[in-house]
Structure formats: structure tokens, C-alpha cells
Design a protein around this nucleic acid. Sequence first.
DNA 1: GGGAGAGACGTTTTT
DNA 2: CGTCTCTCCC
Length: 650
Amino acid sequence: MSHGAGFKWDDGLQGAARRIAESNHTPMRVVAGPGTGKTFALMRRVARLLQEGAAPNRILVCTFTRTAAKDLEGELARLGVGGAEEVRAGTLHSYCFSLLGRAEVLEATGRIPRPLLSVEERFLLEDLNGNGFGRIRAREDRLQAFNAAWARLQSETPGWPHDPIDQVFHRELVGWLRFHEAMLIAELVPETLRYLRDNPASPHRSVFEHVLVDEYQDLNKAEQVLLDLVAERGHLIVAGDEDQSIYSFKFAHPEGIASFDGSHPGTHDEGLDECRRCPRGVVEMANTLITNNPGRTPRVLKPLPGNPDGEVFVLQWRSVEDEAQGIAEIVRRRIQDREVEPGRVLVLAPRRHLGYQIRDALNALGVYAHSFFHEEALEGDPKCLGESNAQQAFTLLTLLANPDDRVALRCWCGFGSDSLRSGAWARLREHCEGSGETPRAALERLASGDLSIAHTGQLIKRFRELQRRLAELESVRGGALVDALFPGGQEWASLIRTLASTIEGDEFDAQKLREALRIGITQPELPTDVDYVRVMSLHKSKGLTADLVVVLGCIEGLIPTTVGDTSAERVASLEEQRRLFYVAITRTRRVLILSSVTQLPRRLAHRMGAQVGSGNWTHAVTVASRFLAELGPSRPKAVSGTTLVQGQQA
DNA sequence: GGGAGAGACGTTTTT
DNA sequence: CGTCTCTCCC
């Protein structure tokens, strides 16, 4: 798909897209609705810069999610313009990660950008006991509050944190992270920001001449301020859409795009409002839906005049099973009749239970479907030795790759104990901090009897086992290493084995295996070019396009799910859910199916958080999602899915 | 370090 | 209603 040699950046480009690509105004803001070609316009701008001779490595193109980043990379490659492959493109976090890993930065910050896996975070929280920090749940909340404060830059106000217990917690938290030579993901951006601020002469502050930011509404305050700093001596262009802001749980600051002109004097504005992707009917419904969000900047998405009306169905089923069977049958027929390709079908589910049902129903009908929920390859309880097999094997692999990895050492020593041996580990840590010895060296001396610390018997036992297993695996490589750590035929190992099977070559070492697995586990791929039906959450669909989109579970409590302790929080949560639904329905090019069930087993309804009305003892009647009504008069009437399938219309 | 019983809580999403 | 978490006890 790359352009021929004669390609020029403005070929076939007109209107706002052309102005976005050709303008050199800075700062610049592009407000663009779903499917309006904003990534396309940004990439044409990169093409222009390159064709005008800009240094590719001084152009930064970044976004928040990896799906979007991958999309950007793909578009860049398709430009076929010289130098495109040298343009710096990726997520903001990957930029921070590489900056913080540079030798001179490591030296200045004293922090090592070794991120904690969620399993490892459990050990951190277990170690932060006492001092009135509360139970594990309370400590999780406390940690989350720190994440929020970092994201919102509240951490920069003098005297922060205010609460005396939080002050101690913060000190203990940072102390733990420093000792274990690790970092929380939430620290990546604030640490980078702090480094750049503290080092005004650093070359990294003036490295970029052009900074292009996509999905700006998904960034939090700290990320937005970091970008200002990175672009301080260059051109900054941000693109986004406040109506597609769906990441408040990670403290996204969607007001940032609406108030960008206020915080960035002299902002030049451009807008893209013609939805090239969606059918006209869907555009109309999306517009009506989103006007229910008060306080948004009023804007109307325009349909592309040549686009079809589209097919929209609102279907109701009597049970989750009926829904799964029925939707699977509809999808199967459409595929069989060659109306749609499997890879162009997206099924979006607000709860994974619903997603799994439909995935299984599709597979049972011979339609290959794959689900993409946040699946933990490292599931299990670290307190039960038998349940934490995958975690332990991965920890062992980490130590094989780097025997000095302090977090992995900490975890290895704690597995299988109710307290994760936090008391014993604290004694060891105290010794290390007093003597300057590394935990590994101290454990080696403890194991050989050279050193003795009270109440560390279990720790030493675990460490001896580690030494034995590391010795066994020392020279094992490739497939044999995978087999030794993650044996075939074991259920707990199967997901990891699948990941390992994608590694190229067969002589890879522990480092390579660990890195591939780490990425596979923490950053699962969301493929765009596939030949099977994809089943996923509404969030994950952002940035994707399909010919047939099914949204399951359109009932109150699921869509929308409202949370919050105060009424203001619940209102904000409802508005975000509306944006999430807006994102979901604007994924389609042709067909949209909105599906719901009229009753649920009480237990399931309760587990999923569905709002229930009357019913009988075992089954409760559900309430149709308010968003269905908010789609306005052009929305077709709800019909019985079963009748539709039997009448073979859909 | 493991087991019994009481009490809390329930979802989704990212780096 | 079932699962997780915490406390208490041995």
C-alpha cells in the first residue's frame, strides 16, 4: 500500500486535512470526531516535514495506547517517504522508559525504570504493613491515591501529602522501590518530568523540532505537561476528541483538549467533522446520544454524503444463552452469505462472561472467534505454592536472566507463605541497608552459614532451592528452557507456552525469553489484520474499525455501569459511560447490532452489577439501557432476536 | 505456617 | 450468594 515514488504529501488532500498537514502554526489543536481521518491528516503532516527535509529523528509522534501507536507506525510506514522509519513513534510511556534508562539519566535520578508486574505489586503491598496503613484493601486504595496524585500533579504542591499516615506511607513506598531497584508504572511520567525540569541544559529538552500527539483526550495532566516540556523548543500539534475520552480510571484529563487554547496562548484551531467511516444512520444516532452529555463543547459529526444508511438492529433475547446462540447464528449467516469477512466482525461485551459465551457459541458453529479480555497469564494466589506455579516459574526465569533482580528475589523468597515472609524479608533488608550488602550477597552468605539473621530460616530454605534450580537451568536454552520452566500438558503453563511459541529462532537465552514473555503478558497484542471474529471489551475497541459491530449487554448496570461515592462522581461516571458507548457504536462501517437480554439469573445479575426489577425467585427482569432511548428517533424499534433469527431476516 | 470462622464485596479499562 | 481477606488459634 505504500505510495509510488512520485507521491507528494498533499496528493489528493483538501480542506481541513490539508491545512493540518501544511500549517506550521504552533501550538495547534485539531478536534476531530471518530472516523474523520485525523491520523491520516497527521501522517500527511509528517510526510510534508520529511519531504521538506526535516530531520526524522527530531520528529516525535506519540499517543496513549499501544493500539493507536501501532496504527501510527503502520500509517507512517505506508507513507513510503524516505526517513519515515527513523521518525520516533510510540506511546508516551515508551519514550519515558527509554529516556529514564539512559546512563546519564539513571545516574541523575538514582531510580531504575524496572516496572513492577501486578503480581509483584502484591509483595510490595504486603511489605508495607503496619504504621496504621490498614488492611490490604486500604493499602491498595492508598497506593491508588498516590497514582492519582502523580497523574494530576497534585504531588507538586508544597507539603504534599497532607495526611500524616500518607506521609509515612509515601516514604515507605519510595523506600521500598529504591531498595528493590524498581519503579511503578505510574511513576514513569512524573519521574521523566522531574528529570527534564531539573536539568534545563539536558539535550533531551530540545531534541524534538516537531511533536505530534494523537488521542490527546486520553492523557492525564502529568502527561500533558511533560509534552509541553518536550516540545518546548519545537512545534506542538495535538489531536483529540473530548467525546472519546474513556480513561478517567487512569486519571485522564479530557478538559485538557477543551481548554488547550487557554493553557496555550496563540493556539491555532482546526477541526475534522466528516465521519468517513460510519453509515449515515449511525452518525445521526451517535450525535443524538452524545448531546446528552451536558457541558461538552457542542459539535456535530457530519456523515459523508456518499455513505450508506447502514443497518441497525436493536435485539432482545430471553437469556444470555439465547443471546449467545442467536448472535452467533446471525454472524455465521452473514459470513456464510459472504456479506462480511470474519476478520471484519467485532463483538463488544461490557462483561467478559458475556464475551466468553458468544465466543464459545461462535466456535461451536465453526466460526473461529478469539476473545481479547485482559487475561492474566500469571493468575493465582502467591500465598499458595500450588496456585502460583506460573508466577514462580516466571520469577525464576527473571532471576535466570538477571540474578540480581531484587524484586524477583523478593518474590521468590515469599511465595507460599501467608505473610509472603514479609517479616523475614524486612530483617534481611534492614541488614542490607545497614551494611550496604546486596540482598543476593547477603542471602548467599546466609545460605553458606557465613552470616546469621534471626527468623530467616524459611527465607534461606527458599534461597537454597533457588540456587539449586538456577544451577540446573544454567545452560539450558530455547525450547528446552521453555519446557523446563513451563512444562507441556500443564494447564497453568499453556498460556505462557503459547506466548513462547511466537519467539523466532530456537536458541534464545533466558533474557530473550523473559523479555518476550514480559511483553506478551503485560502488553498483549491486539491484532488488526485477522481472519477471525474478535470479541473484546468496549474500551479495547477504540481505534478499531469493522463492517459488523455487535454491542452486547445493553442493559442498565452493564451499559452504563455507574460507580462513585458521591453524586458528582456518579454523574461523571455516567457521562464517561456514554462516551464509551459512543466510541463503541462508531466502530462500524456498515452493520450495528445492539443486543440485550430481558432477564438474568439473579446470581449472575448481581455478580455483573446489572440493575434488576421484579421477576421470580431464580430470574430477575432487567432494564433496557437508557442509552438506547438516547439514540433518538432514528433508532429502529427493539425486536425479539429469536423471532428475527427464525424469520431468517438478519 | 496452616486451618477455621467472621466479615467485606462484588465490573470494565491502560501504561 | 459465593469468593476473597482478615483474624484468631494451634
